[in-house]
Amino acid sequence: MSHNKVLGIGLIGAIICMYLTYLNTLLGVQYFSFFGGIAAVFALWWGTDTIKHLCSYGLGTGVPSAGMIALGSGVIAMILATKVNTFGPLVIPVLCVVIAAILGAIIGYVANNIVNMNIPVMVVSIAELCIVGAVTVLGLTAMATGTFVFTDLIAGTATFFGIPVTNYAASYLGGGAIAVVFMLGAIAVQHAFNACLGPNESQDRTLMLAAECGFISMFCVSIMSVAFLSLSAVLVSFLVSLIGWVYTYKKYFVLSKRDAFMWLDAKPIREKEEA
């Protein structure tokens, strides 16, 4: 699959899924939160291919740093996008992509031209990675809280003597829960390529692992969402992520078996015959 095709599927899929979470607000329920997680899966799937593209030039610092810069800049773009409310909440997902693209392009320019990395795809790749980071955080945030609007992300309630009062410390941003999503994304975006690195790396296996990383992150976020969502909505998210994870994990084993030189169970070291 060409990189542009992966980019197209990933970006469009992620944005559509982000809008599907808005059904929560339209219908006044919380069951559609899991679409945020699916958006993150799409983004991570695309980001893995971008990292592969970028790292084929050799960065000198290993693959994980690319994940760190992606999420480090992505989370900044994402929080700003959720805050902008002049155009209504429906603009947020697109705005998130636009802000992240600008921020990523500037950081890419800094890395490529000022720091003098001289890698032809650097600016585009870092811009893509920044979008991936921002959309991943936005998606998992929507999954954890059921919404992607800033005022809801900072709203938390605590009960004092049976009376619910506003307590920002119990909110998604005030309680630091975004840190979990941040780290989940930072590892998930680079793990698939980092783990499958080697001369026999194949795209379908790497991308399957990318989806698996996305679903395991969804799984964690679905458990964390007990703090914000009703139990039935949590259960829906939990089941969706569990099914997705089991499917991709099994599929990944099958693909690894296909690519492996041999698949041995409790056998001794098979010494190479001297040529």
């Binding site: 030039y57 960065l59 000198g60 610092t61 290993g62 693959v63 001289n118 890698i119």
Partner: peptide, 8 residues
């Protein structure tokens, strides 16, 4: 880093 340094 499993990949050799190229840029810089």
């Amino acid at each position: 880093s499993a990949i050799k340094a190229g840029g810089g």
